[in-house]
Simulated scan of single mutants.
Amino acid sequence: MTTPRFFKVERSQHAYLTFITESYEGLCTVSTVDNKNGIVRVIAPEGREEELEGLIRALQEEIGMEEVVWPAC
């Protein structure tokens, strides 16, 4: 596994994010780490980071995902 990345996502978009990422079988694991603030953790297996990066860029434009530092300081 690679280093986890954290994103702030509108809570209304969590189900959509999960649906999309699960459709790319084995691409990544998405877990909610702070439901109140809409923070999710995304981890890709080694060798799929570049593919995941393309999906993240598309989702940032589509649903406004914003990469954040976690844990919040």
Rank of each mutant, 00 (worst) to 15 (best):
I20S: 01
A44Q: 02
I20C: 01
G54Y: 07
S23V: 03
L59F: 02
E67A: 09
E51C: 00
T2L: 14
I43V: 15
T29E: 09
L59K: 11
R41L: 06
E22V: 13
S12H: 14
E62M: 14
R57D: 10
R57N: 09
R5L: 12
R48W: 02
V68W: 02
Y16R: 01
E66C: 02
V9G: 06
T18I: 15
W70N: 01
P45H: 08
I39N: 01
I43S: 00
F6Y: 15
Q60E: 14
G54Q: 12
V68R: 10
L52D: 06
R57V: 09
T3E: 08
K36N: 01
G47K: 08
I43T: 14
F7E: 03
T18E: 14
V33Q: 04
S31A: 14
P4L: 11
V68E: 06
E22D: 15
V9K: 12
K36Q: 13
S31C: 06
E25Q: 05
V42A: 05
T3I: 08
A72N: 01
L52H: 02
D34C: 07
V69I: 10
I43N: 09
V40P: 08
E22K: 15
E22N: 15
P45C: 06
T21Q: 12
E49A: 13
K36H: 13
V40Q: 05
E50F: 02
G47H: 08
E62Q: 10
E62H: 09
E51M: 05
H14Y: 11
E46A: 04
E10N: 11
I56L: 12
S23Y: 03
E10D: 14
R41E: 15
K36P: 07
I39A: 00
M1H: 10
T2W: 00
I63E: 12
G64I: 07
L55D: 04
C28S: 12
V40E: 06
K8C: 01
F7M: 06
C28R: 02
R11W: 03
M65Q: 04
S31I: 09
E10V: 10
I56E: 01
E67S: 02
C28K: 00
I20Y: 01
S12G: 12
A58T: 08
N35H: 10
R41D: 00
V42C: 11
G26F: 02
V30I: 15
E51F: 02
T29K: 11
A15T: 09
V30S: 05
E51Y: 07
E10L: 15
P4H: 13
I63G: 03
V30Y: 04
A44W: 09
S23H: 02
E53T: 05
M65H: 05
C73A: 09
G47A: 03
K8D: 00
E51R: 12
A44R: 10
R57P: 00
S12P: 05
D34V: 10
R48C: 03
